[in-house]
């Protein structure tokens, strides 16, 4: 006897306690709106780094919705995209306090060289294996990052990280489960998973590269290179269980943190910004 149909429904959109944004709750968290905190120029630049990574990745994942391999993945990838948009909004809002700009000014009215995103988040969705490989790398990195950023001397960044870390923990699990399934599913899925990892790996090194900005933000920012041992330790057992090897190949030159981007970003921004830019000054 089915007493409650919802209990029978797989991966229902609202059964989990993460990721869901009710469509009537759309404001930023109170600590961001009501807090008096104004970011310094360096903190704002750092917030842009992190905010742009989340925004670009969310934009990519949003394109999957209604195209995923199964309905459960439409829901799951949608959840991840929503979480990341939430992080991006918080971080861009905070970054904007330094220059009197809003989250939307930063998302819609900057051009390519002003974006600070890493090349890995700019890589196209590709097939599902490429999207999963990208998620696997980025979610593990973000988990290590936000775990440490919770202790930031900057109270706003610490508060954003404390909320985000719980969500990216789920993203880490979601991508890990899929890496295992694809690597050990069928011959075809294994072949695709190996290809995807090797296509994405050239962009991993940039994530952990330090920058003079980090030296100026001691106690506030997390040094990227310091995350590498934890990242390696976290992914090693998953790759071992999946019988996958860390790809050995070339390393891309990167440069996203200084505004040098992949060829993909301009197309992505053109699509994301097209409507807003057609109506300067309009509110939506």
């Amino acid at each position: 006897m089915s007493d409650d149909i919802a209990a029978d429904a797989p991966a229902a959109a609202h059964d989990d306690d993460h990721g869901h944004v009710a469509v009537d709750v759309t404001t930023l968290d109170a600590e961001l709106i009501e807090g008096p905190s104004v970011a310094t120029a360096d903190v704002a630049e750092y917030a842009l780094w992190l905010g742009d990574d989340s925004l670009i990745l969310a934009q990519q994942l949003g394109a999957w919705i209604s195209r995923a391999p199964e309905l459960e993945e439409d829901v799951a990838l949608g959840n991840v995209a929503l979480d990341l948009i939430g992080h991006a909004r918080s971080l861009l809002h905070y970054a904007g306090t330094a220059s009197g700009r809003t989250e939307d000014d930063l998302a819609y009215w900057r051009t390519e060289p002003d974006f600070r995103s890493l090349h890995i988040v700019e890589q196209p969705n590709g097939d599902f294996a490429h999207t999963i490989a990208r998620q696997f790398v980025v979610a593990h990195y973000l988990f290590e990052l936000y775990s440490r950023l919770r202790a930031s001397a900057d109270a706003t960044l610490a508060a954003i990280a404390a909320k985000a870390v719980k969500e990216v923990d789920y993203h880490r699990d979601h991508s890990t489960q899929w890496v295992l399934r694809l690597a050990q599913g069928t011959d075809e899925s294994r072949r695709r998973m190996i290809t995807a990892l090797s296509d994405l790996w050239p962009y991993v090194e940039e994530i952990f590269r330090d920058d003079p900005l980090i030296d100026r933000l001691g106690g506030v920012a997390v040094r990227p290179s310091s995350l590498l041992p934890a990242f390696d330790a976290a992914i090693a057992p998953v790759l071992a269980e999946a019988e996958l090897e860390v790809p050995r190949g070339f390393v891309a030159s990167g440069g996203g943190r200084t505004g040098k981007h992949s060829e993909h970003l301009a197309f992505l921004l053109a699509e994301m910004q097209v409507l807003t830019r057609a109506h300067p000054g309009a509110s939506w």
């Binding site: 991006a88 909004r89 939307d104 819609y108 699509e271 409507l275 309009a282 939506w284």
Partner: peptide
């Protein structure tokens, strides 16, 4: 979704 005019 990819062209929504504000992040909200």
């Amino acid at each position: 979704i990819t062209r929504a005019p504000s992040l909200k």
